[in-house]
């Protein structure tokens, strides 16, 4: 960061306007979340009305079988898709940062597409793909189709985070290790991996969050009663809102905030820039 040639802080009324704007932006970001948390403890059948404090909705959440099943499904899918995408994404990052090979440019572009493509488009792609594939292979939709789709977008996010980390590390360390008779595997295991570990961890946590949060793509490729938690909650919202949804939302919110927080923290270990 170039602090020496940075832009100097403005003064006077201009500075106060900028400051006010910044605080308003943060209020805009966080106030709705805070209000949602508050209302999740409200003892009133209407979702946006305060009626005294209660934990009833959380209790109901803990006793709701469909929600618990959906939560279990979400966790299974997230665990599977994260594991695969961390391995593939890290390898892709290493290949792109450390090697030149034929088709590298195309691969690089292909890897960026899942990040910028709108959810809906990717959902349509996966729906039609699995519809066509099922004609040939005859599998049923559910765990496998959801997991395969989640991997398809997670690889990109993992590789971006790991690449950012790799770009800041020195290739010479690995060369030095091999000069000292480390095998290629040893150099990777004891030199490269530890240095990129924050990126791998951060990318993995991000993949976990994205998988746990996805609604649109999952909704398109699910089948056989395989609801994930967000898809189930989305269905509930469309049917008619109950305070139970407030409680479930808060749990989802806390989980995803904690995961993202950990991911940012992991990426910053020993001075990385968060992606």
């Amino acid at each position: 960061m170039s602090t020496s040639a940075g832009i100097t802080e403005p003064r006077g009324w201009f500075r106060r306007v900028l400051q006010a704007n910044a605080w308003l932006v943060y209020a805009f970001f966080y106030l709705p979340i805070v209000l949602l948390v508050i209302y999740s403890f409200s003892d009133n059948r209407n979702v946006g009305v305060w009626g005294g404090a209660t934990l009833d909705w959380y209790r109901e959440f803990a006793n709701d079988e469909p929600i618990k099943t959906a939560l279990g499904n979400s966790l299974k899918i997230a665990a599977a898709s994260t594991t695969v995408s961390v391995v593939l994404g890290t390898m892709a990052a290493l290949a792109l940062e450390r090697y030149k090979f034929r088709g590298r440019g195309f691969f690089d572009a292909l890897l960026y597409l899942p990040v910028i493509i709108p959810d809906v488009t990717m959902a349509v792609m996966m729906l039609l793909f699995f519809a066509e594939a099922a004609k040939i292979l005859g599998f049923s939709r559910g765990f496998s189709t959801i997991t395969l789709s989640h991997i398809a977008f997670s690889i990109s996010f993992v590789s971006i985070v790991v690449r950012a980390r790799l770009a800041g590390t020195d290739e010479k360390l690995e060369e030095a290790a091999m000069d000292l008779y480390a095998s290629r595997w040893q150099a990777f295991r004891y030199v490269t991996l530890p240095t990129i570990m924050p990126g791998v961890l951060g990318g993995g946590l991000l993949a976990l969050t994205l998988s746990l949060d996805d609604v649109v793509i999952t909704q398109f490729v699910t089948g056989g009663g395989w609801n994930t938690l967000p898809v189930y909650v989305f269905g509930l919202i469309r049917k008619g809102v109950t305070p139970l949804i407030n409680a479930v939302s808060v749990v989802m919110l806390v989980a995803s905030t904690v995961l993202v927080g950990l991911s940012l923290l992991a990426q910053r270990i020993r001075g990385g820039e968060p992606v």
Partner: peptide, 29 residues
């Protein structure tokens, strides 16, 4: 400042929309 922009950036999109549903609703805040 960056971290506090990133957190809502990555957290659950559905829930963040739902929060506005609660706030903007008929008897909402």
């Amino acid at each position: 400042m960056l971290v506090f922009v990133m957190i809502p950036f990555w957290t659950n999109f559905l829930v963040r929309n739902y929060a506005w549903y609660v706030i903007l609703g008929t008897d909402g805040p």
